[in-house]
């Protein structure tokens, strides 16, 4: 197999070639390997000739100079246009400028900001911090913030999804680090008539962030209450 794949060094190749010359069975085995490889390759070669979809080509095209103010609108537009399980670029978490801008805009627009930047990370403040710290998913919402699911991440830290409605509907994921809730992702949630959206209707970006972070299964109501009572440690 390694010979057929061109993986062997010169000496090993020479030995195999001698074996092929001596033994037609070896020659046939090598031939079979190569034939399967050739068939598999040609079965997928057609893809190379297909035109690359515009949305993929656009991703790697030279960056445009869209003004900062348009970022959120542009992002929202691509999110809607693309759908399925694509990960919006701003899931790139705190490291990404996108989240910074998004949060930054919220912070600038709202006098009582629910977030604050601390050493490059975004930390929940005010009503959001209070809800993440003390609210349970099962309780009716009375703070403008609804808690979705709670779980432990790969480092054993607690994380919770939330949904809040202020000037805009926003869903997100925050994880407990030290004494603060650090925002992992924040996504505009489509407006929903009536009450707050249930956890099951989280924006894809939040779902993906949960999927990437979660270790095991979400906490059930009992475990959630216990974790809260223990201060999320």
């Amino acid at each position: 197999m390694a010979y057929a794949d061109g993986e062997l060094d010169l000496v090993a190749r020479a030995e195999i070639e001698a074996a092929i010359a001596r033994d037609p069975e070896v020659a046939r085995a090598v031939e079979r390997h190569r034939a399967v490889a050739a068939r598999v390759r040609s079965a997928y070669d057609g893809v190379l000739g297909e035109p690359v979809p515009e949305r993929l080509a656009a991703l790697v095209a030279a960056p445009d100079s869209t003004p900062v103010a348009d970022l959120a609108a542009r992002r929202e537009a691509t999110r809607i246009a693309i759908g399925r399980w694509r990960l919006p670029p701003w899931v790139a978490l705190a490291a990404s400028v996108a989240l910074g801008l998004f949060v930054g805009m919220l912070v600038m627009r709202e006098p009582a900001a629910p977030y604050e930047e601390v050493n490059g990370a975004f930390v929940a403040r005010g009503a959001l911090d209070a809800a993440l710290t003390s609210e349970l998913a099962s309780l009716p919402d009375n703070s403008g913030v609804a808690i979705g699911i709670s779980f432990r991440d790969h480092d054993g830290d607690y994380c919770r999804t939330f949904h809040m409605h202020r000037e805009a509907s926003v869903s997100g994921l925050a994880c407990r680090q030290g004494d603060a809730w650090k925002l992992q992702v924040l996504a505009a949630a489509p407006e929903h008539a009536g009450e707050l959206r249930p956890a099951a209707a989280m924006p894809l970006a939040v779902l993906h962030a949960v999927d990437a972070a979660i270790e095991g299964e979400p906490l059930d109501a009992g475990a959630e209450a216990k974790a809260r009572d223990a201060g999320w440690r």
Binding site: L59, R84, P89
Partner: peptide
């Protein structure tokens, strides 16, 4: 090859390219 499906395949490329750029 890995997704066995045209739509999933292009979505996978998109997600991966975005991750790579980040």
């Amino acid at each position: 090859v890995i997704t066995r499906n045209v739509a999933d395949a292009d979505d996978l490329v998109q997600v991966s390219v975005e991750k790579a750029l980040v």
